[in-house]
Amino acid sequence: MKGYLQNISKISIANHDFRQVLYTAKHCQLVVMALKPGEEIGAEVHKLDQFFRVEAGTGEAVLDGVQTPIQAGLAIVIPAGTKHNIINTGSIQMSLYTIYSPPNHRDGVIHHTRADAQADNEHFDGKTTE
């Protein structure tokens, strides 16, 4: 079967890696993320659009300086050029998934920790899952 068809909620909640690229298509990419209590993605700006959905935990989304509480079930759309950060302000792991459009990371990459992600200067290399 072409494409990706899985229970993303269960996969997101079971994930304990900071970042794991699950599927990369030509125009978008599906990634699960886990933030430990007090951990954040880190302020960043992309030249692409990004979507987040929180599956477990609580925290804060910061978009162009505006702080908004977030929790399981919330969706966040971040237009290209928006400075943003996601912060886990809760006491349990924040589980979420994100869709980059177009892809942002190398297909299949796994960063077990935020430090691993910061140390790896990888970027999407044009190779898709299929």
Rank of each mutant, 00 (worst) to 15 (best):
V32N: 00
Q20N: 10
K83I: 12
L22H: 05
I70V: 15
N88S: 02
C28L: 12
T82E: 04
E44A: 15
S101H: 00
G108M: 06
R19F: 10
V77A: 15
P37S: 04
H105R: 10
N121D: 13
A115R: 09
D120G: 06
F52Y: 12
I110H: 03
I86W: 01
N104L: 14
T68L: 04
F51A: 06
D64P: 03
G108E: 08
R53W: 10
I41Q: 07
Q93C: 10
L74E: 15
H84P: 01
A72I: 11
R19Q: 10
K47L: 07
K83A: 12
Q93E: 14
P69S: 02
P37N: 06
T89H: 03
V109H: 00
L96Y: 06
A119G: 04
L35M: 05
P37W: 07
G38Q: 09
P79S: 05
Y23R: 00
G38K: 06
K26M: 11
L96G: 03
H46L: 14
I99S: 02
H84W: 02
V109M: 02
Q50Y: 07
G108D: 03
Q29I: 13
D49F: 09
G90T: 03
G81A: 08
S95T: 11
Q93G: 09
E60M: 13
Q118M: 14
A56M: 14
A43P: 05
L22V: 08
V32L: 06
P37L: 07
D107I: 13
G59Q: 02
